[in-house]
Amino acid sequence: MKVLVPIKRVLDAYVTARVKPDNSGVVTDNVKMSINPFCEIALEQAIRLREQGQCDEVIVATIGEQRAEEVLRTALAVGADKAMRIDAPNQTEPLVIAKLLKALAQKEQAGLCLMGKQAIDSDNNQTGQMLAALLGWGQATFVSKLEVQGKVARATREIDGGLQIREMHLPAVITVDLRLNEPRYASLPNIMKARKIPITVIQPQSLGVEVVERLKILSVVEPPKRETGIEVESATQLVNLLKNKEKII
């Protein structure tokens, strides 16, 4: 079975986003960019499935401009077999991305799509569910435990009230949560080797998908700042303030 892992290049999780002075977006030049942490976990899981003999090939794909290939190199270095970039703007909308990935999944005959539940830049949490819908596949979202046995995947989902276990008939789309696994690091020799692996570049037209924009970002601003608070000496003083000044407890 082939596993398709879509990945995204985003502002590094440890960098605080800064709004551009002209309010057109967030600064992404000259700041550290990385593979989206959720995508990294999905990739790790795909590699583990291959190691368990449940997967023959791990295919990674990204949608973006040329610089997005950085994350494909990272993915190849940790063990992906094949890497593809669909040449479209970095800010392509989730529905278009889902259409591109649908075409790719069909072309590659993927039996499972493993992907992050959301990207930490746009925080949309849409693409996996949309992809599953377009393919007519089942979906297990926010998964923190996964066992694949042939054509069946048992997925434990993190839901608001606790956990839910579903058994998925493959093919399916599985979106992963943070506690699924601890991603491995790439070794230096593998990073060097990954540099030489060719990356296939695909045009959206060749997948029969038109890249359109239905949402326009009119402005991006900083959230309101909180005022600096006061330091208290003890828990007793704190309780007094909350009781008598704030009248909240």
């Binding site: 009119l218 402005s219 959230p223």
Partner: peptide
């Protein structure tokens, strides 16, 4: 967006 570090008008 960006974990609430920016607010977008869409």
């Amino acid at each position: 967006i960006y974990a609430g570090n920016a607010i977008a008008t869409i």
